[in-house]
Amino acid sequence: MYGGGYIHQEESTKKQPEAVVEDPAKLAEFQARIDRGEKIEPHDWMPTMYRKQLIRMIEQHAHSEIIGSLPEGTWITRAPNFKRKMALIAKVQDEIGHGHLLYTACETLGKPREQMINDLLSGKSKYSNVFNYPAVTWADVTVIGFLIDAAAIVNQLANSKGSYGPYCRALERICAEEAFHLKQGHDAFVFLATGTQQQRDMLQAAVNRWYKPIIHFFGPSDKESVHSEQLMRWKVKMASNDDMRNQFFDMYVPKVREVGIDFPDPNLKKDPETGKWSFSDPDWDEFYEVIKGNGPCNAERLAVRKWAEETGLWVRQALATPYTKTTVPLA
């Protein structure tokens, strides 16, 4: 589903730029290869900074897929009918599959999957902020399936044109499956929007709840960031946070409004001159608080993830030694 539209940068790396000095000749050759549109493969030489940033990005993306399936997974047992339930099960399975694809892609850069999981459980690694909010009603599930997935696709389509081969290949597969997620989400969204007044009210309330997290999803404006510029030259980051957010509004505000639902923001407007959307301040302080671990569901998400890890342990152990013989007592 969802890449971290916003890739969280740990405080420590924000303050002190990488001290690694790269060989300028190799660096130039590396840049030339990327400029020619060639992909970088795991055994190629790459700058330390490139490797580190990709690990952070792919790992956060992988965690987001796994954690992102939790708010929706909660609703599988309470889906309103069989058709929606089948679609939701298929979607949640896809998300877990995406997580696995991304863990293997990230491992090619040298960080073992076990370490990534440990960093997630300990809170060291982050995942997309949106999944720290609860899905209160079924309408929230449709908003996630439609709008959060839509936001994620904007991000992932951009990244699939990036420079690192294994990540691009994983993203191509992911984007193909996301097409189904988006369509089933849109279908469920339109169904509620064109239903009874009660259904419409429920949907509008859910859209109101998710508006801020959706804006947060793409991250704060990064236009001024030098760091971001370097990553764009290396095709690690393919578009600025603002550009992706703008693209999302362009594509999806009309689709929300055409069924008589709207985002709860009188200042959400497109400037016909510049083509840029403006919106009210979405409270970036809240965004940073949630990243720090103080969102409504941070603790809950990690607790469930830990539970899955611990209750799955005996299965992994059994699989590791599948031919162990046991003796059944005769009496």
Binding site: P112, R113, E114, I117, L121, S122, E309, E310, R316
Partner: peptide, 9 residues
């Protein structure tokens, strides 16, 4: 804490 051991996966 819960920890995954190296190579557990």
């Amino acid at each position: 804490e819960s920890t995954v051991k190296p190579n557990e996966y």
